[in-house]
Design a protein around this nucleic acid. Structure first.
Lengths: 142, 142
DNA sequence: ATATATGCAAAAGTTTTGCATCGCT
DNA sequence: AGCGATGCAAAACTTTTGCATATAT
């Protein structure tokens, strides 16, 4: 088989994803942020680098990044989704006062061996979020 | 102190909550449902008993019930909140294929003694949701 | 009697989408 | 060149809110 034939045969049905300025700016901005921004916050932050970016593009690219496993969504007791570029296994702490969201290491080694089956349904993962009051909020309202 | 004076002094700042046909219908409907309905689903279900009920009333009463601890919200990888009238401690299983949501007993006794402090922030509770594929969805897409 | 709850409809906020154009590959 | 991505704006959805009226206590 020639090199050209191999190349042709190798990627026949590959739905290729393009790398664009916008996609990389969104991903980079998310990587650099510590506070699990919402799509709206990310939209504003990205405008610093790519002033003409649109909300639609931010949402579309976030969906792509999530689909590719490069980004994960954190759903909290809030109206909007928040994003996290740390894809390794970890949990979260959410302050119910100010919605601050913190990454938390899974301290319990047991957490690793999560159940693989629940009443016959296949378990593929889990999300664990601690809820509470952060120090500043506790100080403000004792 | 007279009886009347005592009564007046006894509940000076009590913000009393009234029991209405709508509130009870919403709560009863939620108690009877096994599938963690959304506000919209509840709205339609309640209309069977109280045909003139409005969405606003459903949302307002759900908020009251949550505030009173009679109902809890489950936030999943979905756009809308889902409600649960089982307030005892338990976890959930969410099917990523069809969004079916299942109550799951907390099997691990250790889960009870949840951490009380994370990096100085007070922890008051936690939510744990298993993610996976339910049997029907797994059968449909192997 | 009066404060609270309701119904209606409009508003607010988040996310999705249609379409013409742009820009990777 | 061709297909995927973008920007814009409108639409779709979920949830909240203002106000006049109804209702529980």
């Amino acid at each position: 088989m020639t090199g050209a034939a191999a190349r042709r045969a190798a990627k026949p049905t590959t739905p290729r994803q393009r790398s664009t300025r916008q996609l990389e700016a969104i991903y980079r901005t998310l990587c650099e942020s510590r506070d699990h921004p919402t799509a709206e916050q990310l939209y504003h932050a990205v405008r610093a680098c790519v002033p003409a970016v649109s909300r639609g593009t931010v949402y579309r690219n976030l969906a792509k990044l999530v689909g590719a496993g490069r980004v994960r969504i954190v759903h909290v007791h809030d109206r909007c989704a928040r994003y996290d570029a740390r894809t390794g296994p970890h949990d979260h702490f959410l302050c119910l006062g100010c919605t601050m969201l913190l990454d938390v290491e899974s301290t319990d080694g047991r957490r690793e061996r999560t159940r693989t089956r629940i009443r016959g349904h296949r378990v593929e993962g889990h999300v664990l979020t601690y809820l509470g009051t952060c120090r500043p909020c506790a100080a403000a309202r004792p």
